[in-house]
Structures are given as C-alpha cells and as structure tokens.
Write a protein that binds this DNA or RNA. Structure first.
Lengths: 368, 368
DNA sequence: TTGTATGCGTTATCAC
DNA sequence: GTGATAACGCATACAA
C-alpha cells in the first residue's frame, strides 16, 4: 500500500543534508529519489558497492546525501544481520578504573567500526540481570563483562548460545569465556618485592570482600603465599569500604600493635587506596614511615603528600585486548579454547614507600 | 504513553527459563505455546494486560516464562512505538563530574522505566556527529547533551523535529531546548564571597578556553564583574590544560608579582583544580597562604594537604532534573517555553582557603 | 474478549 | 548488474 507521501514528488532543495520530515528518510525514499530499486540502495550500504555501476553509485550517493539517509539499525537487526553493537556490563561506573578500561574498549570498538553500549549495574544483581536482558535484546555481537558475577548462569547460557564473551578483571567458574585483566600474581609479587626492598617487614593487605570478585581472591591468595615465602609478617584485612569506622578501628589496631618491624599497607585496588588514605590522614599517620602502596593509579596519587606509590594498570591496552578477543571469537565459528590475557602493571614509585633515614627520597618522575 | 513492557512487572528470567535454541523466542512461538494469537501476547506486553481474561494471562505468562521470551525492542522500534530509550552525549567520559551526572541520569531513567544509551565524544566534533546519528537511529525518545556543542545545527534540527532535548551544563544559541546545570552566577558569587571573607584581596580565575562551553563563559564573565564590584585585584587565566608548562609559567608569574595583597586562585572546574594543584605542589606553594578553591568536588580534595575548599555540584539532582525535563517535554505535545533549571552548589570549606595567622584553622567536617 | 491482516525498514533469495 | 518479493518480530486498525 503506497502512501501519498512517498509518491514521486519528494520535496526538493534542502541546502544541507537534512531529512524532509522530522522522521529520517527510508531506503525506499532514497530509491525513488535516485530512480533505482530498494535492493540497489541496500547493496550500496551493505558492502556490495562494487557490484553496482558507477552511475548508479553516483545517483544513490547523491540522493542519500540530499535526504540525509542513514540505514535504520533496527530494521537491520530485525533481519538478523550484524548489529555492529558490542555490549559492556560495568559493575560501578563511578570507579575510575572501570571508566578507564571502558574508554579503551570504546576506542578499540571505534577502530573496528563497532558501537559500544554500556550498562552500569551499580553492583546490583537485579540491575545486572535487567541490563543483560536489555543488551541481548539489542542483539549485541559480543559482551564484555566487568560486573559482580552473581548470576553466572545467565552469562554461561549466553556464552553457550554462541555470544562472544570476555570477562574483564573477573573469572567465572564453569564459563567458557575469554578473560582479560591484570596479571594479579605478578602485580602482588612486584608490590611485595618493592616493599621488601624498601625495608618494610610487616605488611597489611586491605581488600574489599573477595567473595564476588575473582581478582580480589587472586590478589589476596598471592599476597598470603608471597608474604610468608618472603618471611614477612602481616595479614589480610577484608571489609566493605562504606564502613569507615570499622576500617579506622582495624587499621589502627594493626598499626599500633607492639612491634619494632617497619610496617606498610598494600591496597587491593583504587577504591581501597582512597578509603585507606582517608583514614590514615585522619589519624595523622606519617606516610613513608608507615608505607603505603596501592594497585591502580589515580589522578590524585601524586598529589597526596608525599605521593603514593602505585601499580598502574595499562587500561587502554586491556580494553583493546578485550575487543580483540571478541573479534577473534566472532571470526572463528568453532569456539576456541578459552584464552586468558594477563597484563603486567607499571610500578610508579613515590615517597609513600620511602622510609625516612633509610632511603634517599625518590625523585618522582610524574611530578612536573 | 504506556510502557508496560519494561516497567519491571515482567521479571526477565534467565537460568530456569531459556529457549531451546540459541535464538531468543519470538512472540509467535509464545502464542503457539500458549495456544493464543500473537495479538494477545502483544497486548499482554503492551500495557493492555487487564483487557485479557485471567486464564489467558496465565497461559501467556507461563509460556513466556518457559520460553524465556522477551519482546524484541528492534521490532518494536520499527513500528514507531516508544523505544524506551534515552540518549546521552558526553564530551569526556573520564571527567568525574560528567560521570557523576550520568549516574544521576541513569538512576532517574531507571525509576521511569527508561534505558539510557550513553555516547562519549572525547571532545571530538566528528565523533559527536557520528554518535548523534547512532542515537537517533535507535529512535531515542529524548536526548541529554553534555558535549562540546559544535554542530549546533544538528542538535537544532533534532529539537525542531520534536525530539525532547536537554542541555547539561551548556547552552546553545538559537536552540529551543531546556537547560539544566549549575547556577554559575551564584557559584561564582559564593566563591568570591568566601575568598573575600577569608581576607584574600587578589584572585586569579583559571579556566579552560571558554569558546566552546557556555558555562565557562558564564563563570568567567561573572568572575570579572564580581571581582571588580568587590574591589578585588586579579585577572582571568584561560588555557588548555594539557599544556602544563604554560600553566606553570603563567601561574608562577601571577603568584610572584610584586604585591602585598593576600592572593588566591579560583579554579573553574574539577579538571582545572587538578592541573592547578599539580602545579602548585611542584612549586611547593603553601596552600592556604596562597588560597586555593575549586568548582566541583572530587574524591581527593579532602586528601590534598591541607584540604581544598570546593563548591560541590548536586550531580544526582542535576541528572534527575534533566530526565524530568525530558519527560515534561515528552508529555506536552506543544513545545513549551524553554526552561532553565539552575542548581546552587554547596560550599565545602577546607583549609586551602585559610590564611595562617588570620583565621583559626577550620574544622573539616568531611574528615573522619 | 479475541483473532486477522497489514505495514514498519531492511536484507536475502530469487529471477531477469 | 539490477529488480521484485518474501521474510524478520512486533503493534495496531479492524473484524468477529
């Protein structure tokens, strides 16, 4: 059934590329305007441009520009074609590390001609499920997950259903998916080596509860084994960061314990570093004399006197790798062996790990 | 406008309910399984549930759950129905302020049963245009923009075409859109009042180049008028933040100028505060003696000795207001008078604006 | 209350 | 090379 609006006289003379109506132009309108069939226009936009005659290409290009035509991804998606969409599930959008990786993912997607659809779960399993449903409903071609990881079943099913899946900074049992993230063992080793070298003999590892995140477990486990193998004293402190009072109490208890050993604190991630630094400052704890070191580099780590030593993750590379894995999975029809890609952090030494009178203050290269 | 499909009344179940095939179930399959027509299933999910008999509701619900059915938003969108999608254009996803507002927007959307699609433009006009095309191609029902604002034409066209548009922290000439953001005049006044009260008589306002962002212009203009009306000395320093050397040079020139007046620096936004703080620390400038104050509250402002005084924006409220404006525009068919919503910041006083020997050190309530 | 028929914009399968 | 036509999954007038 033809509608009058489509018959013949498509309005003319738009200066710029602007649709006639508020509604975007359709492939049919372009076809009419160019005097060709829908099929040809479709071919023009579906990578079969070479199979069209030069004159037809001209006409289509011209008409499309005049009408401001732009293929409708909805309609494309309906037909089951590639959506050009990659989904990403982020546990906490306000976490700078997540944002940094997201930025890397986004850049990589752009280079591949893909669009990224990000969903924040706010660490809420319900939201995680809803967002998962939303993403799949848009027929994403791949999914990058950096979320709590309850409901592994849902993810497992998606992966089993053939959706390329990459786990970021997480691993999930029984899931056939690629993993990309920090080399946690290496990171902890680097941290312990550095602290040992600086003369600290007693170390507290502070982490958020590891139950829900495998990377936290990995770091914690490596810390324990690495600490004892190096003959260091110390322990692990695992708690929710929103409970500032508890953190203060337990941190103080550790620091005030009767011991002569030089003491340091190692923070399991950036959020922990923030919370711990707050507490230490409130207690007027002298940084350096009490060592402080964190995983994840943040804007302010060089600003807090005397500068906080960190292990910086290569976030852009991690994001890029995640997208690469997705593409690789997409290319091979056969599901390959799940592959794990682990990145080595960069040690940024500042004076929070410089004991006064023992080492000469380190020159902070990141300082202007 | 009905939007029953995603209002949360329909639990989306993974795990127990999963289609046999990897491809999601369609409305037709549910209809078959339940022994009813497509239409009835459609009605069930389109807010006309009450008009169906109880037994039919039962059968549909059961079948849908068994098959893991979930309406396909692509197909829905094709028919021109409400997409349930709100778009957001962000200039810089790594800017904590933008992320904070985004989080507020997201929460508000969730409460309204809307989904949010965020696009980062990385301050790149080309990307801005591409992302704009992407968003519109998904038939978003409203657009929240916090981006550079070149290509105002494209936005103007969209708004003219009836797309509800909200400008965040920006205004664009000749655009008929709502605006939500900080009350810039009030913020600057509060800052100048505070600095004056603390005895500073000479103030430098540091801002990124205001050409592309109206809020920067507004703050700058108000600063100039407010400064002179208060009889304060000072000037405006406008520069790109990536040029650290230039910032260092010009900042030093200002501070070292021969004058007896107590001097302070006011930072136009969080990014500026970060860059300026870096420079001051490198120069070993004593904060407080030289006043420092910033617009935007950041994680680390309380950590940098002796704590940086800031004006905190109510980011959640701003995000919520943006979505509210969108809904209001959506409701009224007639385009109402563009409305501007301006929020008052909260002054968080720390010791970077406490001159030694003049005021007793302020007790920082944000410190534990 | 429930079902039938049609169109939304696109791509794939044919035919010419 | 190019074009007609049938799906794709859903919503909606319209019919019963």
């Amino acid at each position: 059934m033809k509608r009058a609006a489509y018959d013949g006289n498509v309005p003319i003379q738009y200066g710029s590329a602007m649709p006639a109506t508020s509604r975007p132009a359709t492939i049919l309108e372009v076809a009419r305007d160019a005097g060709v069939s829908k099929t040809s226009v479709s071919r023009y936009y579906s990578g079969e441009r070479e199979r069209l005659s030069a004159s037809m290409q001209q006409r289509i290009a011209h008409a499309a520009e005049r009408l401001g035509y732009q293929p409708n991804p909805m309609a494309r998606g309906l037909k089951g074609g590639p959506s050009g969409l990659v989904g990403m599930l982020v546990a906490d959008i306000r976490n700078p590390f997540s944002v940094a990786v997201m930025h890397g993912v986004e850049q990589a997607c752009r280079r591949q001609g893909l669009s990224l659809m990000v969903c924040n779960t706010d660490n809420d399993p319900t939201l995680e499920r809803q967002n998962l449903a939303l993403l799949t409903s848009y027929r994403i071609e791949g999914l990058i997950v950096n979320a709590a990881g309850r409901h592994g079943e849902a993810l497992a099913e998606l992966a089993g259903g053939g959706l390329p899946l990459v786990l970021l900074d997480r691993s999930l049992e029984g899931i056939d998916a690629d993993e990309v993230g920090l080399d946690n063992d290496r990171a902890i080793d680097m941290a312990l080596d550095h602290l040992t070298e600086r003369g600290y003999r007693r170390v507290l590892f502070v982490t958020e509860p590891p139950a829900r995140a495998s990377s936290r477990q990995a770091r914690m486990a490596r810390f324990e084994s690495g600490r004892s193998s190096r003959g260091l004293e110390g322990e692990v402190l695992s708690l929710e960061l929103d409970d500032a009072a508890s953190l203060d109490r337990r941190l103080s208890a550790f620091l005030e314990a009767a011991t002569q050993q030089p003491t340091a604190i190692l923070c399991g991630n950036g959020q922990v570093t923030l919370a711990v630094t707050r507490t230490l400052q409130a207690r007027r704890v002298p940084l350096g004399e009490i060592g402080l070191m964190g995983i994840d580099e943040l804007d302010w780590c060089q600003l807090v006197t005397p500068g906080i030593t960190t292990l910086a993750q290569p976030t852009d590379a991690i994001g890029q790798a995640a997208v690469d894995r997705l593409r690789a999975r997409q290319a091979e029809r056969t599901t390959p062996e799940p592959r794990h890609e682990r990145f080595t952090p960069t040690l940024i030494i500042r004076d929070s790990t410089c004991r006064p009178g023992v080492d000469a203050p380190h020159f902070d290269e990141t300082r202007p």
